[in-house]
Write a protein that binds this DNA or RNA. Structure first.
Length: 424
DNA sequence: TCTGGGGTCCTAGGACCC
DNA sequence: TCTGGGGTCCTAGGACCC
């Protein structure tokens, strides 16, 4: 029996989302910025051709961007998340087993008992996704996830392959792997790339042929798994049901640095509120809360970073209790006299909400009341837009809010911002 | 002036126990 | 000079992903 993986990868996903609703951006250089308009996190092909690199701070390109007329978008995750869901639901209709790997990627499992394994079928999937969502994708096929990943990169680069590349069809896969820089292998990041290059392992083929024991010693079992996958031995199975979450966190950099404890408390209350919403959406309660804060680690000036974790008296998803706890933690790590750049909250020890352990002093009825209150708040905010009801602790003016100066409308998730079609 | 956010997994080393 | 051995659990830190 033959089993294969296909990796479906949306091309320049965030840029493609913007282009679906702003067709004037087609064929033009476009970049999408991270939160706070910090760095470039997506680029159109035209922007890549101008030499704009991934992850580089926006301000470094301001001149180039102005000179070349590059169109700039602040990131709009409400839009991208919604578009992602649409792409994934099309894919789910095409195969029996799918792993949604990230906002813009999914692995499909192809076996000869399921849908037909063929580049022809993959091309049909591609056309369907484009027609139904407007998003262009590339598809790579291989005997392991790692090889499917490599194949998808080839699919993007080869002009004549129609967006689909099957590495198992390739007459000389080794020659192909020799053309792939080792840094492009899934699982090889900056540190390993430096280490490997230093030792003469510069291509995917070199890594494939590296001795097992040496790899195990220097790159742990993760490295060995990568090598075996390059050899066509599948070690990383498809995860069709998402693993239960281990943590939920919300953090943001400030639009400009913050010194006052009161402002930090507003920010922490805001992030805690958001994180608690996520908890309840997943029907979870948190046993532990961590709060962290830090100054800007890039700038000169005095630096300070700290974090503190505490256990909840009883695991909960009740926003007021969580804000109370995170404020206590913040006050304990706050030091006056620093210009803070970022703070955040992390919930861990997540358990399903129906497994709540009562303690002796908390009557069950008050928990029910709290739960009902939160449920009502979530429903109202879900219906009328987030922050229709909010906690006073989050503040109103929020001078610390992040920058998002060039954000596009929430075309698909907000009634007031639907795209408008003009006749004639 | 201006450098994202939210996750995962693995390992080494310390604490603790018998 | 010279301080057991082996297991488990937890945490911090480091690597990675998109």
């Amino acid at each position: 029996m033959k089993n294969l993986f296909a990796l479906v990868d949306c091309n320049n996903f965030y840029v493609s989302c913007e282009r679906v609703f702003q067709p004037k951006l087609k064929g033009k250089p476009v970049v999408v910025l991270s939160n706070n308009d910090g760095c470039v996190i997506a680029r159109s092909e035209e922007a890549k051709a101008l030499g704009i690199a991934m992850g580089t701070p926006y301000f470094q390109y301001k001149d180039l961007i102005e000179r070349q007329g590059v169109y700039v978008c602040s990131s709009n995750y409400a839009l991208y998340g919604d578009m992602s869901g649409r792409v994934m639901s099309v894919l789910a209709q095409c195969v029996h087993q799918i792993e949604v790997y990230s906002i813009d990627e999914a692995f499909l499992f192809l076996s000869d008992t399921g849908p037909v394994i063929s580049t022809e079928y993959a091309r049909q999937i591609r056309v369907m996704v484009k027609r139904w969502t407007g998003i262009p994708v590339s598809i790579g096929i291989g005997p392991t996830k790692t090889l499917a990943k490599i194949a998808s990169k080839v699919a993007k680069k080869k002009p004549d392959c129609g967006g689909v590349f099957d590495i198992t069809d390739h007459s000389d896969a080794d020659q192909l792997l020799d053309g792939v820089p080792v840094a492009d292998v899934w699982g090889v990041g900056r540190q390993y790339a430096k280490f490997l290059n230093h030792r003469g392992i510069t291509t995917a083929l070199h890594l494939k042929n590296a001795p097992d024991r040496w790899v195990l010693k220097h790159m742990t079992v993760m490295g060995l798994r990568m090598v075996l996958e390059l050899r066509g031995i599948s070690c990383i199975p498809l995860k069709t049901t998402p693993a239960p979450k281990k943590g939920i966190s919300v953090s943001r950099s400030f639009g400009k640095s913050v010194e006052a404890l009161d402002n930090l408390k507003e920010a922490i209350a805001t992030y805690t509120t958001r994180a608690a919403e996520k908890l309840r959406a997943d029907h979870l309660i948190a046993s532990c809360v961590t709060v962290f804060l830090m100054t800007n680690m890039f700038s000169d000036g005095p630096r300070y970073a700290n974090s503190l974790t505490a256990e909840c008296p009883i695991p909960t998803s009740y926003t007021p209790d969580l804000i109370h706890l995170s404020h206590q933690l913040l006050e304990r790590i706050y030091r006056p006299g620093y210009r803070y750049q970022k703070t955040g909250v992390i919930f861990t020890g997540l358990v399903p909400e129906d497994r709540i352990q009562l303690n002796l002093f908390t009557p069950a009825s008050s928990l029910d009341r709290n739960q009902e209150l939160m449920h009502t708040v979530d429903r109202i905010n879900g219906r009328w837009g987030s922050n229709t009801i909010f906690f006073a602790a989050a503040g109103i003016k929020q001078p610390w809010r992040m920058r998002r100066s060039m954000v596009s409308p929430r075309y698909t998730t907000c009634w007031d911002e639907l795209p408008v079609a003009h006749a004639g």
